[in-house]
Design a protein around this nucleic acid. Structure first.
Length: 572
RNA sequence: UGGCCGGUCGUCUAAGGGUAGGACACUAGGUUUUGGUCCUAGUUGUGGGGGUUCGAAUCCUCCCCGGCCAACCA
């Protein structure tokens, strides 16, 4: 399927894709010659956690804008708080961005690269009378700041002589004072309606070892000071961030305008991504990991990029998803179904079809010779004739899906039931003649007869069977483990009605099937590769796979219209 | 209660004074050796009241609702 086929005029008139407000802004800026006709963006993660699907939106936006308008996009680690940051996160962030398909070339930067320059500018602000060293403690600073409805009061140190501030600042840097003793603050407006402008902190004392600068620094810059100036240093033209930074923009501009920078970046805010049935905040993700609710940052139920990769998501699916959701300034929550749609769309086009029985039930073909084996050619992918075929062995004893047999078949049941005939995919028609039970009365085996004339799955007399089942030759079956993942949360909006996150957990979000039966071809699929388990869904080979054990993660199920139908039939 | 931002189908997102369109979801049908895919059709929307205008989702006004801001986090 080619999207251009849908256009009546074909390839020559692709439907014009609407532009989002950021693209419009960039085009306008380019047309007006702002920033010298340059476009330069950046993706600025703090290395204090793993990237998630929300970051993917930002990465696609920033790198996409650069790509589409002949610009560049930097990777910059916003490492201004050594307490939270870890080089392990730096590496995971690099890996995730590369996985998404983006390349920052030689432009990997760190805010810590700029500590000297930032310090110089802080000194500049003090000399200009625009910053001062304050001795209020944390609690006092909060009190003096006032509230959203009341103006703040000036710090008693606000008018400290410049030379004194300069001296104190230098000694702060040298490590002469304990943490919390002093701060450097911008002198702006304690009565500003915008709380961010009430003499915000520029530096705080931290006797911490930074993962890149070691113990060289005893003071660390705050985000609002470091971020905008880092943008200026790098010649960023468009600094894109999420909506909650709207109020910070006034401060952003203040620092850029009051420091002798040689480049003028502009901040623009867009709505962050929210998804139903999951949580996106680092705090909540961290809680799930640390309380052992999930098995780590790469747990396939998490929306972290490493989790999604392990779940079997593809970068292509994430890309088309990001493209489709757009970029706007409205707070929004995207339905998980949309993400899953793009995932199925991608996987449907390329995942090889294989047959795996998740809940095995023995099926014996009584009129098929015991010592015989046939080999059928199984189509790898009906969506892609070029994908070829693979060999599929067939014999007298097979495994079929327990759920494909019903003693008392409901209405519109196309599958196995006493006396019913079905097609075994690529093989023969079989008819269920007898049901074998154990002493507890449980069905343990189906005895069937096959029609030799139906070889390949068609009968010469043209009779139709509605049901086509997947199966695995018992003698040739490969054992494997399937991990069936579903949403971590039962609620579309966890915590929505004052519920605690943990109350919304689905206890069945992971169901392990340790003894599945797969056709032999599956043994050759490599870790990280995706396949479709016929009639079940898309699965990916998990890294836990080794010589003794093959593990498959369910990425996403196939749509199941029978499940819907059955639900509808039931009450009536 | 102060400031700022924002409200278009169930969910996202277009239309920027001139036919409210697309995608997902949902419903019904068709095709099918996956109850998958694919195809066809359909339901559903401009938060509310005033105003300007031949004409308003779009401009003005009042109201309502939602989000963000009072870390030495980012």
């Amino acid at each position: 399927m080619n999207s251009s086929d849908r256009s009546p005029e074909g390839l020559n008139s692709p439907e014009p894709k609407p532009k989002n407000f950021i693209q419009e802004m960039v085009e306008r800026d380019l047309a007006e010659g702002r920033s010298g006709g340059r476009v330069h963006t950046r993706f600025p993660p703090e290395p204090n956690g793993y990237l998630h699907i929300g970051h993917a939106k930002s990465i696609h936006l920033n790198f996409g804008i650069a790509r589409d308008y002949g610009g560049k996009c930097n990777l910059r680690f916003d490492d201004t708080n050594p307490l939270n940051e870890d080089p392990a996160f730096v590496e995971s962030i690099r890996r995730d961005i590369r996985w998404l398909g983006f390349d920052w070339e030689d432009r990997e930067f760190h805010a810590s690269d700029y500590y000297d320059q930032l310090y110089e500018w802080a000194v500049h602000l003090v000399r200009e009378g625009k910053a001062y060293v304050c001795e209020l403690d944390e609690k006092e600073i909060r009190e003096y700041r006032g509230t959203v409805t009341e103006a703040g009061r000036p710090s008693p140190w606000r008018d400290r002589p410049v030379e004194e501030s300069l001296d104190l600042l230098e000694r702060m840097r040298q490590g002469e004072f304990e943490e919390g003793r002093y701060t450097l603050r911008a002198k702006i407006d304690m009565a500003a309606a915008n709380m961010k402008m009430r003499d915000p902190l520029i530096y705080r004392i931290r006797h911490a070892v930074h993962h890149r600068t070691g113990d060289r620094w005893k003071i660390y810059p705050m985000y609002d000071f470091a971020h905008c100036l880092s943008d200026a240093i790098e010649g960023i033209t468009h600094s894109l961030c999420t909506l909650e930074f709207k109020d910070n923009r006034e401060l952003y501009d203040w620092f850029v305008e009051n420091c002798p920078v040689s480049s003028r970046p502009y901040q623009t805010e867009f709505a962050r991504l929210n998804l139903t049935h999951t949580v996106m905040s680092k705090r909540k993700l961290k809680r799930l990991v640390e309380e052992g609710i999930v098995e780590g940052w790469d747990d396939p139920r998490l929306p972290t990029l490493s989790g999604m990769r392990r779940r079997g998501y593809t970068p292509e699916a994430i890309a088309t998803f990001c493209d489709r959701i757009g970029v706007a300034r409205t707070d929004s929550v995207i339905e998980l179904a949309l993400l899953e749609h793009h995932l199925r769309e991608d996987l449907n086009a390329r995942a090889l079809r294989v047959m795996t029985v998740l809940d095995p039930l023995k099926l014996v073909i009584t009129n098929y010779p015991e010592d015989r084996t046939e080999v059928f050619q199984a189509l790898n992918n009906p969506e892609d004739p070029d994908a070829g075929t693979h060999e599929l062995p067939f014999s007298r004893e097979l495994w079929v899906e327990r759920g494909d047999f019903r003693e008392d078949a409901p209405r519109k049941w196309f599958r196995l039931a006493p006396g019913k005939e079905v097609r075994l995919k690529f093989a023969y028609f079989v008819t269920c003649e007898e049901v074998i039970r154990n002493e507890k009365g449980e069905v343990i085996e189906l005895r069937c007869t096959y029609d030799p004339q139906s070889r390949g799955g068609q009968s010469p007399d043209g009779r139709k069977v509605k049901g086509t089942l997947h199966w695995v030759s018992a003698r040739h079956a490969v054992e494997c483990e399937a991990r069936l993942y579903s949403n971590l949360f039962t609620e579309a909006h966890p915590e929505a009605e004052g519920k605690d996150l943990l109350e919304c957990l689905d206890p069945h979000s992971l169901e392990i099937r340790p003894h599945c039966k797969a056709e032999p071809y599956l043994a050759s699929v490599a870790v990280g590769e995706s396949v479709q388990f016929f009639r079940h869904g898309y699965f990916v080979v998990d890294p836990d796979t080794n010589e003794e054990r093959r593990v498959f993660n369910r990425t996403v199920g196939l749509r199941d219209s029978w499940a819907k139908l059955e639900k509808k039939l039931q009450p009536g």
